[in-house]
Design a protein around this nucleic acid. Structure first.
Lengths: 208, 208
DNA sequence: TAGGTTCTGGTACAGCCGTACTAGCAACGT
DNA sequence: ACGTTGCTAGTACGGCTGTACCAGAACCTA
């Protein structure tokens, strides 16, 4: 077996090229040829690794989601109070250039879901994941006693879920209107709303 | 001057055809030909009213936004307390089939903004409009004395803004996961959170 | 060195895209 | 009745799309 190139590494390179094109030109700019050119390959070479365009888009979206999950899950595991919850949730939001990529790609592909049932399924599943995350977050706050006693856990989790998705959407679709600082401030503000006033959480504010 | 067809009516028909295609097949299914066929016209006839595809997309998006605004603005004008605010905000969310159309179209076009600066501008402006609306809503609650005294108006408005956009995104992008009842419940739940517990708001408890 | 496998570049095919042109139809003013 | 004008259908062009085929280069094994 000659020319044993690392297939997974090659696929990763191609997916990253797709991400670059996607962020630069939107989903409309993504084609087999443009992505291949971005990756420095011929369309045929790309097709060797991804037999069809839909497969490419699918793995690109899955890769994006798992990338985000890889960042969040460890933080979730070690989060035990509001400070930990806030740190974890911030990792999900487009608050800096590095983290901005994932949601942007995710949104672009989610919008394309009507054209591809596979993408729709991934999008739905991602949404469910964020919802679970919101539930876990509220559960942690309830467990640590920081959640206001008069709040329903279920409803609060739904609110947090919607808030997160809204911040993601705003931060990606309208970066000019929504600065990272504002995203941080809004998340902190909401946690202030749902947490007991007695708990001194101000320390979690200045992130710098 | 013969055959004096009502241009505006014709344009409206075409825009509605575009909406139907957009909701059925996503932005990828929208082309001059498909929209023309949906409207029962030849591509040439369509081109007579919209000289270019971008113009068509632009007016479709503007029309969507103004359609939503036309529903919300009167409700905003007469909203003086939480009940009015809630009614107004519900008009903005995809809680029934009729109202689902606007946000769906808006989202699809917003996602396409990277390919068209004009769409991006409209999208940004729409976002600013929703933000203003959130501010007005919180302002009304503050004016009626229903807003919790310990809450910052500015921060609460940002939270409400993000929550609304999140609900819109969820309701449109993942209708299977987010039922209209849940959207209503989440909005009510959030208003419960930011309003004084003392104020007896209708059905603010268990929605069913 | 010969053989066999993995990989890649070039080329080709339909098909759809946006846009443009041109001829012709329908209706109104005169 | 007739020309003028508003409007529409047909057709065509170049370009880009996804996909497919095929010859050949690169490399390991023997």
């Amino acid at each position: 077996m000659p020319r044993l190139a690392d297939h997974d590494a090659r696929r990763a390179e191609i997916v990253e090229a797709l991400w670059r094109v996607l962020r630069r030109d939107g989903i409309a700019g993504v084609s087999v040829r443009t992505v291949a050119a971005e990756a420095g390959l011929s369309p045929t070479a790309l097709r060797y690794y991804f037999p069809t365009q839909d497969a490419l888009l699918q793995t690109a979206m899955v890769e994006t989601v798992t990338s985000g999950a890889a960042r969040v899950v460890p933080l979730l595991a070690q989060a035990a109070d509001r400070t930990g919850v806030e740190r974890m949730l911030l990792e999900l939001l487009p608050v800096d250039e590095r983290q901005r990529a994932d949601p942007e790609i995710y949104l672009a592909l989610a919008a394309h879901a009507r054209s591809s049932p596979a993408l729709a399924a991934i999008s739905e599943e991602t949404g469910a994941g964020i919802r679970r995350l919101a539930h876990r977050a509220v559960g942690i706050l309830a467990g640590s006693g920081e959640l206001r006693a008069d709040l329903d856990v279920e409803t609060t989790a739904c609110c947090l879920d919607a808030l997160l998705q809204g911040l993601i959407f705003q931060g990606c679709a309208r970066p000019c209107l929504t600065s990272p600082e504002e995203i941080r401030r809004t998340l902190t503000g909401y946690l202030d709303q749902i947490c007991c006033a007695g708990t001194p959480t101000k320390g979690s504010g200045p992130t710098r």
